[in-house]
């Protein structure tokens, strides 16, 4: 089970690579969105290993914050600065 978490960590680093490379800023937002989705899975796998059920609330709050941040970043970029 822990090696599954390790492979997910490698895959999330690949998403971060897209954030570094991405020619346009929209590729960077896409990479960040995927990175947060995969990181929620890493938190969930960690709750299975450690058998602590309070960590699911951490993953819940993190997915909500990730969604809110994506919404406002794209809104900010779409309106080119004046929301």
């Amino acid at each position: 089970m822990s090696y599954l978490m390790f492979t997910l960590l490698l895959l999330s680093l690949l998403c971060l690579l897209r954030v570094l490379i991405g020619p346009t800023i929209w590729d960077r937002i896409l990479g960040f969105n995927l990175f947060s989705a995969i990181f929620i899975l890493i938190i969930l796998l960690y709750t299975v290993i450690e058998d602590q059920s309070y960590l699911i609330d951490v993953a819940l709050v993190y997915s909500l914050l990730g969604f809110i941040s994506i919404v406002f970043i794209t809104r900010f970029l779409q309106k080119k600065g004046d929301i």
Partner: peptide, 9 residues
């Protein structure tokens, strides 16, 4: 979220 990204782009 991915819909917002593509729509904004």
């Amino acid at each position: 979220a991915s819909h917002f990204t593509v729509r904004g782009a």
